[in-house]
Design a protein around this nucleic acid. Structure first.
Lengths: 81, 81
DNA sequence: GTGTATTTGTTCGTATGTATC
DNA sequence: CGATACATACGAACAAATACA
């Protein structure tokens, strides 16, 4: 999976940059409802960030209602309202 | 858990206001020796402060010897001297 | 059935940058 | 300038449930 480089110094914090990318993947249909998004560890490895940062990203998308997290399973793309 | 509203503008800094409340809970026996006090995140959510503020609160109580923090476990009420 | 890896949940430790009073 | 507060980030450890060989 190819991911954009994130800019740790930019005005947009890394966790938001990653969220922006995931959001786009969802909107573009690369990640469809019911599908699992990259795990926290995946995001850590893909973007080279700490797990706490990856968790913030997922938390943000969850707050936006774009995804649903199932403990010990993963985080899934939500069906559009 | 019900908590008092803190006054961010008052003369007493939020971290002290929260510490005051926790100290009273301990003295009143609501929080007994060996019991875990609310985590930093709990305090963040309960009082609507930043984690650093919650951390300062716990640090204060720790300096006072009222609590003991065990890494990766939590912060516990200390037995009375 | 048993062990191992995966994944999320939770917690604390530490640091940097910005802003306000 | 110092104290306080907030936002963000990285690191580390342990728990618990699930998945799988």
């Amino acid at each position: 999976m190819e991911v954009p480089q994130i800019d740790p110094q930019g005005p947009v914090p890394p966790y938001q940059q990653i969220a922006d990318w995931l959001r786009q993947q969802i909107i573009a249909g690369e990640l469809r409802p019911g599908q699992v998004i990259p795990s926290e560890k995946d995001l850590v490895d893909l973007f080279g960030v700490a797990r706490t940062t990856a968790r913030r990203t997922v938390a943000l998308l969850r707050e936006e209602g774009l995804v649903r997290t199932v403990p010990q399973r993963g985080t899934y793309v939500t069906s559009p309202d």
